[in-house]
Design a protein around this nucleic acid. Sequence first.
DNA 1: TATAAATTGGCACAATCTGCCAATCAGGGG
DNA 2: CCCCTGATTGGCAGATTGTGCCAATTTATA
Lengths: 152, 152
Amino acid sequence: MDTKDRQIIRALQRDGRMTNQDLAEAVNLSPSPCLRRVRNLEAKGVIQGYSAEVDPAAYGLAITVFVRIKLERHNEEDVQKFEKRARLIDEVLECHVMTGAMDYQLRVLVPDLEAYENFIRNRIHPIGGIASIDTSFVYGTVKRTAVFPLSR
Amino acid sequence: MDTKDRQIIRALQRDGRMTNQDLAEAVNLSPSPCLRRVRNLEAKGVIQGYSAEVDPAAYGLAITVFVRIKLERHNEEDVQKFEKRARLIDEVLECHVMTGAMDYQLRVLVPDLEAYENFIRNRIHPIGGIASIDTSFVYGTVKRTAVFPLSR
DNA sequence: TATAAATTGGCACAATCTGCCAATCAGGGG
DNA sequence: CCCCTGATTGGCAGATTGTGCCAATTTATA
């Protein structure tokens, strides 16, 4: 993982579908070593995949919600159960374990407020063992990028 | 935006670099109309771009932080100033305007705790007009996907 | 400086993309 | 019921891109 690898990563975060030839030119390599580095980063799990960035509203998911959840108990069993169930919920795009007053933060995508109510009632509450839920809706997005800062 | 478009979108969220031929097969189309639909979704801004998914720790950014910020005043000038400055900070990958007690939530990536302290001191506080900051570090990530739920 | 290991560049072949044209399909009016 | 129109589709050929191999170059080490 040298400077060239980091250049490659940032270029592919900006445009994950750029051709290997353009990428090679952008990082001052010829195509074959460039492709080799990319494949290597993929094999080592540094690059975990590629994905299309889609406007949620245009797709029909107008509402983004950050949901913070605190469990009643933190024994192995209840924690495993919560995390296993959370992973299976399609509306949950992210679920992180957090420091602070709440245990988890979820990023949730739903078409409307009614769907959010149903999500809480039918997907979250049935998991059980939940002490409290704190909901924040997203009004607007000031910035959203996949490109990491230059680390050194 | 019909069922086929949604299939295409979800397939490209799972693998943004899949060949048009594989994509066409996955959604039961032949390559040319499939490519036309993709280009159309791109032109309409539904697909906003493509990007590589990278492991932040492997890249050297071990710490993910969600920072919630409340402003002292909400006049046009102070809000514009904060948002403009936030957009320019490389460590800030996301910045959303939120409902609830705090005004903004940022997703921030830094190499270590020291860098986080510097980030707050040198990037956030100098903006001015900030009433309070609430920091939550990410211990672990239970789920992280780019694939939207089937809408309907 | 000599040597070994790692990385690079170029080339040829295979796979993929791209733009065009004809064929097919869906909907509306006579 | 049929014909017409517009939209969408499928297939094809040329251009672009990816892929794997080998020799040349660079880098690191003794």
